[in-house]
């Protein structure tokens, strides 16, 4: 069962009306709601990967303080199927980064301004194409 607070230990009345915060100047996104699990498309509208996670703060940092401004630096994609089922997450070295500077639009999909072939995240697909599919007779040209 996912973690939750028992009703008897909740510190605040549940139906309390809270004040609305001041609206920030930029576009507001909730990471889980608007970014995670979204499909990324490259500049030719070719699907690249899904956004499995985000890198925030300086790479390698494990502790963040509210006194510092923290920014999203990259979208992360990797082999997360098993960890989604059994828990945990893959080691950081198995996650591929797509720098935020490549992102051109965030909507139903996340659009990138680069070709997918130039991104590390597709290396498995490229390797299979070159070493497996390409060795099958007829595997190096369009059918028909």
């Amino acid at each position: 069962m996912s973690p939750r607070l028992r009703r008897s230990t909740r510190p605040f009345p549940p139906d309390e009306t809270l004040p609305e915060p001041v609206r920030p100047a930029g576009l507001v996104l909730d990471a889980r709601l608007h970014l995670l699990d979204r499909q990324t498309l490259d500049v030719d509208d070719v699907p690249v990967a899904t956004v499995d996670d985000l890198e925030i703060g300086p790479p390698g940092s494990s502790l963040l303080a509210g006194t510092d401004s923290v920014f999203v630096t990259a979208l992360l994609s990797g082999p997360v199927l098993a960890t989604r089922i059994f828990g945990g997450r893959p080691p950081a070295s198995r996650l591929h980064r797509i720098d935020w500077r490549h992102v051109t639009d965030v909507g139903t999909t996340v659009r990138l301004g680069v070709h997918g072939d130039s991104l590390d995240v597709l290396w498995v697909e490229r390797w299979v194409r070159d070493h497996v599919i390409g060795r099958i007779p007829g595997g190096r040209h369009d059918p028909g």
Partner: peptide, 24 residues
Amino acid sequence: LGFVVDVRLVLDGPVDGLLAAPRV
């Protein structure tokens, strides 16, 4: 008090590429 269920981002960070960097 509870658990973190999401992180709110605002696109008002330094512009790097076409979009501003999302600030936590």
